[in-house]
């Protein structure tokens, strides 16, 4: 039983990562056969060994933690801004109508195109990076919160009002638990964009962060470091995404248990 469970999990893992494994195998093979352009494409083995070595160094962890610090700060800021606005817009259709067009107007503005403006407004350093992560995070989160609030079961709301629940109680006991899965989904959607922009944002006015590390590697032709930086970004993205998926799944299980 245990053995078949392990085999089944292994099979599932292999299938879910099939394309990645194929590409990794081909890269490995190309390196072994000497088919890769050594200037631009180091072998997979070189990249993995280099990444492993970098992860033993305090300096590299400093870069990782610097980027993560900005990402989580930006996330937190986007949450505290999007949450009240999303609940209000989701609860009151007139507020939704009043603000919707403005949000749709600013939504397509490319954060990287705005970054020079952020630098002019906020200078170089932590602030423009925080603002750019906030910029890409808050709108997907906002829309998810609005949708979550609008999808709250009307029967629960009516029942709560019937029993004399205050607005605060309705918000705390019904709306917030109901929209939690939507918030988590919004965060998960935002994380990919945040990683993209933080790498670009750290290329200006920085001396730390994975983006700075990658740019410096490219300027000094340490191409294997460049690949290691990219690999670490990808791993961070997968780990954070997996965490949100796990959290989302457990929240849904919890909510389903509550319904029963």
């Amino acid at each position: 039983m245990k053995r078949s469970f392990i085999l089944s999990r292994l099979k599932s893992l292999l299938w879910n990562n099939f394309i990645i494994l194929i590409l990794a195998f081909c890269w490995l093979l190309a390196g072994y056969l000497g088919l890769n352009n050594e200037v631009f494409i180091p072998t997979l083995t070189e990249v993995l060994i280099n990444t492993f070595n970098l992860l033993q160094t305090e300096k590299f962890w400093g870069h990782i933690l610097s980027s993560l610090g900005v990402i989580f700060s930006g996330f937190f800021l986007s949450f505290i801004v999007a949450m009240p606005i999303g609940v209000i817009m989701g609860s009151f259709s007139r507020m939704n109508a009043a603000l919707r067009n403005f949000i749709e107007l600013i939504r397509p503005l490319s954060p990287l195109a705005l970054y020079p403006l952020f630098i002019y407004l906020f200078g170089i350093g932590f602030m423009p990076k925080l603002i750019i992560v906030f910029w890409v995070s808050w709108i997907p989160l906002l829309f998810n919160i609005i949708t979550g609030v609008q999808r709250v079961n009307e029967d629960y709301l009516r029942m709560a009002k019937t029993f004399g629940a205050t607005r605060k109680q309705i918000l705390k006991e019904i709306i917030l638990p109901a929209i939690t899965p939507w918030i988590i989904t919004g965060m998960r959607l935002s994380i990919g964009s945040s990683l993209l922009v933080i790498v670009a944002a750290e290329m200006i006015g920085s001396n730390s962060g994975i983006g700075f590390f990658i740019l410096n590697a490219s300027y000094t032709f340490r191409i294997v470091n460049l690949y290691s930086g990219i690999l670490v970004i990808a791993i961070i993205g997968i780990l954070i995404n997996s965490f949100f998926l796990w959290w989302e799944k457990n929240i849904k299980i919890y909510n389903n248990k509550i319904k029963l």
């Binding site: 194929i22 081909c26 190309a30 890769n36």
Partner: peptide, 14 residues
Amino acid sequence: IAAIIIIGFFWLNN
């Protein structure tokens, strides 16, 4: 097919 495509890419680049 996947392997041929990827190796072909590296070969052409080389």
